[in-house]
């Protein structure tokens, strides 16, 4: 269901994006313009030609196909009349997150933040929140790669203050 969608009309202009590791991606113009960072490269920059390569310094090529797939599908969802059933959107979103490790999710959040696209960023931060909710403190630290910088005394004090919140956690 992914990328074949609208490419039947061959006139769609393409924009070339260059990932951090130098790999090039040819992207239909409307899809590329979903990313504010790409858009601002052209808007108000009259010298920029549409055939210029846009460098995306913080986005690894590993995540580009998935990110572009997200934009293609979600912009299609938005345009479709009548709007797609909630289950279809949900199924796409779930499939998108499936097999993504925590580390990959983090990297995609960084990429979405750099590309400055609200929709993808909101979606990914919600996904991250879902992965850490009702989890133990140790799990959350491992998830974000955070070092515990509390002394044992400090930690015990904070734990005591919020004791009631520590019942009913999920298994890590």
């Amino acid at each position: 269901m992914a990328s074949s969608s609208s490419s039947s009309s061959t006139q769609v202009k393409k924009i070339t994006l260059k990932a951090a590791d130098g790999k090039h991606f040819e992207v239909e113009e409307p899809v590329a313009m979903e990313m504010e960072t790409v858009k601002s490269f052209f808007v108000g920059n009259e010298d920029a030609m549409k055939d210029m390569v846009v460098p995306l310094l913080n986005v690894s090529s590993e995540h580009m196909p998935a990110i572009l797939d997200f934009y293609r599908n979600h912009s299609e969802f938005r345009k479709r009349t009548p709007p797609p059933p909630a289950e279809e959107v949900k199924a796409f979103n779930e499939a998108f997150l499936e097999n993504k490790s925590d580390e990959q999710l983090m990297e995609m959040i960084m990429a979405a933040n750099f590309l400055n696209t609200k929709e993808l960023l909101n979606f990914l931060t919600e996904a991250a929140a879902n992965r850490i909710k009702n989890k133990s403190v140790e799990y959350v630290r491992a998830f974000f790669g955070i070092e515990n910088d509390f002394t044992p005394e400090e930690e015990a004090r904070i734990r005591a203050e919020n004791e009631w919140a520590f019942d009913g956690l999920d298994e890590d």
């Binding site: 931060t125 919600e126 929140a129 850490i132 909710k133 009702n134 989890k135 133990s136 403190v137 959350v140 630290r141 974000f144 955070i146 070092e147 515990n148 910088d149 509390f150 930690e155 904070i158 734990r159 919020n162 919140a165 520590f166 009913g168 956690l169």
Partner: peptide, 14 residues
């Protein structure tokens, strides 16, 4: 995006 109880636990992370 977390619940209040998860937020209270987050205080202990760092």
């Amino acid at each position: 995006r977390l619940s209040v109880t998860s937020l209270l636990q987050a205080k202990r992370v760092c």
